[in-house]
Design a protein around this nucleic acid. Structure first.
Lengths: 191, 191
DNA sequence: CCTCACTCTAACGCTAGCGTAAGGGTATGA
DNA sequence: TCATACCCTTACGCTAGCGTTAGAGTGAGG
């Protein structure tokens, strides 16, 4: 397919340790467009340009892009990342830059842990839903799906877990907002 | 401020168990606009309308909105939720509907666990970053921030963790894509 | 020599999930 | 009687993070 170890097609420049944008893209799994965007937003800059205008990066650019990716997963926006960078490099003393960064990390660590807790909660709800649905295997009154709303089966719990209850309520809610939709008031369960 | 226990301002209809869109909004923390959107997308439908055209919901609508919220946190798009609903209600037999739902839950459970693992990884990286930065406290050579790139301090690890390395590489990357930017090739660390 | 693979800049397009405004109606309470 | 608090529909606006043309240049291999 493509030449094995060379940067791309050509060494591109005497200094063969430089990478072109496509190389960065392949190395990081991003698209060329994304790399360009990061540059536009001030997150990344080629070390230099080749004579014909190609962007040339050194290897640290790969680290930078991976850094961007990690922070993105941490919920940072690209703008926030730019603030982190300018914040760091605008501090004249390393000590204060370090302190800022540490505070940021502490905040994000808390947020991350919070997010993990919320997802663990959702994990439990899914498990609960599955346990509930498992008892449908031996349903005492198999029938059309709309009868599941008034299910009398013993599912081991008082009421269906949220993730199941949300579905079973109010049948036929689908249908993309057409005419006013009329429903007889008597049909409404008076709860 | 607002009337205490009444649906809103008025009972709105003989059947006092019905809720208006504002009530649903307050009960779920969503905005009225969001509720309307859910309806447009076929995720929710008022049980009926009042004589003057107001949407009137029964209490199960609150469950439905909470359900939407949970699934949203699980990474579902509103479109996907609609598919889940139509999928459920279009199955004529409860058994097959249940099987579909269970498969979906299983898939999402895996995804959720995966996501938790990824965030735990990020959590570790943050902690690692903090441990690294902590050793900056007793920096042997305090100075301007750009010297941190060649830090000779013993941080207890061979190389700075990714979240720190990504920042320290290539200084001054900020500056919103202006002129071509020239850099002397000799300045590039040949890694 | 021609074609392919790669690059450039500039700029419009797109999805999601609402926000927000415009223009108009109803009902409650001071 | 008026102000206030709800509600309605329609429809354009907005942010993020790229995707996707368009139009043009460069170097290498066959």
């Amino acid at each position: 397919m493509t030449s094995s170890s060379l940067p791309s097609q050509a060494p591109a420049t005497p200094n063969s340790t430089l990478l072109r944008v496509g190389d960065i893209a392949k190395a990081t799994g991003k698209t060329v467009r994304a790399i360009h965007l990061y540059e536009e937003l001030g997150l990344l800059r080629p070390a230099t340009r080749s004579s014909d205008g190609f962007r040339l990066y050194d290897h640290s650019a790969v680290d930078r892009v991976r850094w961007i990716d990690s922070l993105h997963e941490l919920g940072f926006s690209l703008q926030e990342m730019r603030e982190v960078l300018t914040n760091w490099w605008s501090a004249d003393q390393g000590a204060s830059a370090m302190t800022n960064l540490r505070d940021l990390f502490v905040r994000k660590l808390e947020e991350t842990r919070d997010l993990i807790r919320r997802h663990q909660q959702l994990e439990r709800e899914l498990e609960e839903g599955l346990r509930y649905l498992a008892t449908c295997e031996n349903c005492a009154a198999p029938g059309p799906v709309h009868e599941c709303v008034n299910c009398a089966q013993d599912h081991g719990v008082k009421s269906p877990p949220p993730l199941v209850a949300g579905i079973k309520t109010s049948p036929e809610n689908a249908r993309k907002s057409s005419r006013p939709a009329f429903v007889r008031v008597e049909d409404i369960s008076t709860s």
